[in-house]
Amino acid sequence: MTDNFDLESLVHLEQIFYDSGYQEGHAHGRIHGLIEGRALGREKGFEMWEELGFYEGFALLWKSVSILQGREDDRALNHIKHLLTLISEFPRANPSVIDKEGSVDVPKLFRQIRSRYKALCAAVGIRPSLRAAEKSLPDDDQGMDGGSMSDQQTNGKEPIWTVDNRPGDPIGS
């Protein structure tokens, strides 16, 4: 029992048990990663696009008002045009993935959209919705570049937002 061969085979056995456990656990973990990831991604995608969609619908409403009233070249219409263009440039997939490629500066785009929305509100003489002031989405100081997935897992505070080295798949419109 105490010669070298036996010790080695014992160590080997431990490794075999460990490996078989690891494999089983890994397969199970993959399922849970997908499930939890989907739940988080759904929530984040909804939150982000609900806000963008709101600005889009709002802009479309005022565009249709402008046309109804035959005011084709006023200040509001100019804001509407810019707002709709900015929104159409916004990625429909997880923007942090695309952001890594440097093609879209998502926080900047978001800021531009919000201020264009506020400008449109001013032009049509109404008070902007409070959502434009919310800080729930990525800003300069947090979000896009922070928090790896493991950070996310341990503190549970920041939604996964950033990926390391994953090719983006820009789905613009």
């Binding site: 397969a27 995608g45 939604p159």
Partner: peptide, 26 residues
């Protein structure tokens, strides 16, 4: 294994939930 497996697919799940469900419905 379960921790490593989970980490390996979390982002994939996030991206699919974002693009296929959350963003269009939102």
């Amino acid at each position: 294994g379960i921790t490593a497996g989970k980490e390996s697919t979390l982002q994939e799940g996030f991206d699919s939930g974002f693009a296929q469900v959350g963003a269009p419905i939102g």
